[in-house]
Nucleic acid binder design. Structure first.
Length: 791
RNA sequence: GGGCGCAUGGCUCAGUUGGUUAGAGUGCUGCCCUCACAUGGCAGAGGUCGAAGGUUCGAGUCCUUCUGCGCCCACCA
């Protein structure tokens, strides 16, 4: 058999992938006689291209599902993509901008057409890249978070939660991205250490008649002031009070006095509240109820006015008087200048603080008062906490359990409405007539066109109809003047249903066709979720809550959290930093097997991965080693192994034979155990060590003379060539099966050439069974003797 | 302000429940293109396992403190 001396992955990978896919080896159907093993893919963004994080994430999943299939499970890996609301909308808007267009120009409908077009064009890129990686997903089950079934699930869930009082609408300070112009959840606005300034501003105290003696000293008295410290001076335009701590002796006398808000000359009151920290700044805090969560609370408590001074795009609005129209940061500069020249800026101190930033565009988020929809999380969290505490769901590595529990125990309500167009539109309808009436009862004193009424959470609002389909008439007043809410749902509102929506919920559940064999019945809960640390709150936690709430069962049993892929300096790989290594380039250069084996070898459980190009040499060289060892064996074993060899006993074997067979048992055991506990680098290390440094370096070398000359006396004793050939094939074939989950392509290529020697009829190594340990071949004595010999 | 992770040969990292001379990949030195493989083989140099203390017959491995990096969470403006 003529084989090149170098393994050429490019020639074989596509061929075998096509073969597997066309043979439907990835497709799984429920089989009551077998146990299920199911993974749902963390759906990549439709706009996405494969990065090293995906490569790691999906390699691990593929290893698991291939391994489990070989162990006799019905292995199902459900693939899919995520519509990724804000991210995708941003990408399409950028491409429109290059044509000199904006989504506002196009209008909602036309814009959505463009996004769907984009999705059709680019949505399959990452799927094809996953195939290059070798992922054995059941592509017949490919889902998209906005396809019909999944959209149905979203509506179903929204309505159910609303009916239960777990979804409500209200005016709150939320994270607002002025660039994306939408509300964000707390998770979508991660805090970032930011170097800012603390500005100390003098607010003059208004002279009372009593304090105003009829002398020329008037001016002096009027110049008394209180100093507040702020990091965002532009929000002072919306101040409606200054607060001090009631215990603060410095300010006790001033409580209740009136201040003149500089620049706008509005009168505001000094109030007292124990929330104020006496030690921070001057101990006096400006209160801007429409632009800060704490101030919002104070505003409600003390019945202050809520003045929104900003447009949704971050420019100042008409409430900012002459600053109206200025960008928020430009406005800040100008205000500081004016305060300074008026002698009202006492001092400026550098101040390091954590500020929220949009996770999609990194713009500094603005705490902004607006009316949004929320999910009340506490009731959902309680059973989800218990599921983990009781051990129904286990995290690997364990330490993430605490991270999960800490977050869940302090969970806050989830802001789910987004002011964008791409996504699931809220199944919420408003009756115009009923709303008008409701607006009369506004309890908030708002000075902004944005807000309507303040609604107590969980109270059903008049004029609001939540329904999966558009109602013809208002059930209250009968009016047909009904409009749907303009907003769409947070992208994660569909992702959190993924483990069951991807299996057909809710149709499957309602359908009469539901049988013991239905997917949900058979494959749910899934076996393991493989994901990265940064997505625990966004996704993992919420899936657990949704699973328990809607399926009455956990969505997965194990959660394997792998590390983050970084460059050699420790930075996260990202396009914007320009430090990415493109997996497709690595595959083209070294092969998918090399990529897979390398990345898994250097990834210790849950530890971050630091990558560089050279690290892929490890896998490439190993693939080549496997290739050449096989080449050697195939060249020396041309006839099928006689069946009689299969019943070989120890007495027929030399020391080297007994040793390598014993080592094979140990390797099999080691790899199996390592995979069972998600210890992938250990599994890779064991098979690498065995194959290269034991099988190739020692056994093959010892055996060469026998193969060269037939029966011959060797250091290890009288030896039969046929026995040696049998063992070579045996070790090689078993090693290939141990390696297959990690290196599917090269193992298939060689296995197909080896199988005739074994008289094996199986169509693919994929379908062969996982090696078992034969205790009869464990031979400590031979191992000790070989160690002595090797020294 | 909480929490977590990491500090082991030049570099990048493994080291299960504490046990004989601490491993791998890569790099380096020397010799080999020997008929599977130079993406290779053989031989070799190189580490007082961040610091200090403690537990123990025995610690890279457990406890305490400290130092230096990194990450996550957090409504002191």
């Amino acid at each position: 058999m003529e084989l090149p001396s170098r393994y050429n992955p490019g020639e074989v990978e596509d061929k075998w992938y096509k073969f597997w896919e066309e043979s439907a080896f990835f497709h799984a159907e429920p089989d009551p006689k077998k146990k299920p093993f199911c993974i749902v893919i963390p759906p990549p963004n439709v706009t996405g291209i494969l990065h090293m994080g995906h490569a790691l994430n999906n390699t691990i999943q593929d290893i698991l599902v291939r391994y489990k299939r070989m162990r006799g499970f019905i292995g199902l890996w459900i693939p899919g993509t995520d519509h990724a609301g804000i991210a995708t909308q941003n990408v399409v808007e950028k491409s429109l901008a290059r044509e000199g267009l904006s989504r506002q120009h196009l209008g909602r409908e036309k814009f959505l057409e463009r996004v769907w077009l984009w999705k059709e064009q680019y949505g399959t890129t990452i799927i094809n890249q996953l195939k290059k990686l070798g992922c054995s997903c059941d592509w017949q089950r490919l889902r998209f978070t906005m396809d019909e079934g999944l959209s149905e699930a979203v509506l179903e869930v929204f309505v159910r939660l609303y009916d239960k009082g777990l979804i409500y609408r209200g005016n709150y300070i939320i994270n607002w991205c002025p660039r994306c112009q939408t509300a964000l959840s707390d998770e979508e606005a991660p805090h970032q250490e930011t170097q800012g300034n603390l500005y100390y501003i003098k607010y003059p105290i208004k002279a009372t008649s009593k304090q105003k003696p009829v002398t020329r000293k008037t001016k002096e008295i009027e110049s008394e002031y209180i100093v507040v410290a702020t990091t965002r001076p532009e929000t002072m335009l919306g101040d409606t009070a200054v607060a001090v701590n009631p215990k603060d002796k410095r300010y006790k006398k001033l409580i209740g006095k009136i201040l003149i808000l500089p620049l706008v000359n509005r009168e505001i009151k000094i109030i007292s509240d124990s929330l104020v920290d006496m030690k921070f700044g001057t101990g006096a805090v400006k209160v801007t109820p429409a632009h800060d969560p704490n101030d919002y609370m104070l505003g409600k408590k003390h019945n202050l006015e809520f003045i929104n001074v900003m447009h949704p795009d971050g420019r100042m609005n008409e409430n900012a008087s002459r600053f109206s129209g200025l960008d928020r940061f430009k406005c800040r500069e100008l205000i500081l200048e004016e305060l300074n020249s008026a002698g009202l800026l006492e001092k400026t101190e550098p101040h390091l603080h954590a500020v929220g930033h949009c996770y999609r565009c990194h713009t500094m988020v603005e705490p902004y008062l607006s009316r949004q929809w929320f999910v009340r999380m506490k009731p959902l969290a309680i059973p989800a906490i218990n599921a983990v505490k009781e051990g129904s769901i286990k995290f690997y590595p364990k330490r993430w359990t605490k991270v999960y529990l800490d977050w869940m125990e302090n969970i806050r309500d989830w802001c789910i409405s987004r002011q964008i167009w791409w996504g699931h539109r809220l199944p919420v309808y408003y009756c115009h007539k009923c709303q008008e009436a409701e607006n009369q009862k506004s309890t908030l004193r708002l000075r902004s066109g944005l807000m309507v009424s303040e609604v107590e959470p969980s109270k059903i609002e008049n004029g609001v109809i939540v329904s999966k389909t558009k109602p013809e008439k208002c059930p209250v007043c009968g009016s047909s003047d009904i409009v749907q809410d303009e907003d769409v749902l947070d992208t994660w509102f569909s992702s959190w249903l993924w483990p069951f929506s991807a299996m057909g919920w809710p149709e499957t559940q309602n359908s009469e066709l539901r049988t013991k064999n239905s997917d949900l019945e058979y494959f749910y809960p899934t076996s393991v979720l493989v994901t990265a640390q940064e997505i625990i709150f966004f996704w993992v936690a919420r899936m657990i809550m949704a699973g328990i709430e809607f399926m009455d069962n956990i969505p997965f049993e194990d959660v394997y959290i792998h590390g983050t892929v970084r460059d050699l300096t420790g930075k996260k790989m990202s396009k914007s930093l320009g430090n990415i290594i493109d997996p497709i380039k690595v595959i083209n250069e070294f092969g998918a097997d090399a990529l897979r084996f390398s990345i898994v070898s250097i990834t210790a459980a849950g530890q971050d991965v630091f990558l560089s190009d050279e690290k892929f040499h490890l896998g490439r060289n190993f693939a080549n080693k496997i290739w050449n060892a096989s080449r050697f064996i195939l060249a020396n074993v041309s006839q099928p192994i006689a069946d009689s060899r299969l019943s070989i006993t120890k007495d027929d074997l030399s020391l080297a034979d007994r040793w390598i067979l014993s080592r094979l048992q140990k390797a099999t055991q080691g790899v199996t155990e390592a995979l069972e506990r998600y210890d992938f680098n250990e599994a890779a290390g064991i098979i690498y060590q065995f194959f290269w440094h034991e099988f190739c370096d020692w056994y093959i070398e010892i055996v060469k003379p026998i193969l060269a000359t037939g029966n011959q006396l060797t250091v290890t004793g009288q030896e039969g060539k046929a026995t040696t050939q049998f063992i070579l094939v045996e070790i090689l074939e078993t090693s290939l099966r141990l390696l297959h989950p990690m290196m599917p392509f090269v193992t298939e290529e060689i296995w197909q050439k080896v199988k005739p020697l074994n008289n094996n009829e199986t169509k693919s190594i994929m379908l062969s069974s996982w090696p078992t340990i034969n205790k009869n071949f464990i031979d400590e004595d031979s191992e000790i003797k070989m160690i002595i010999m090797q020294d």
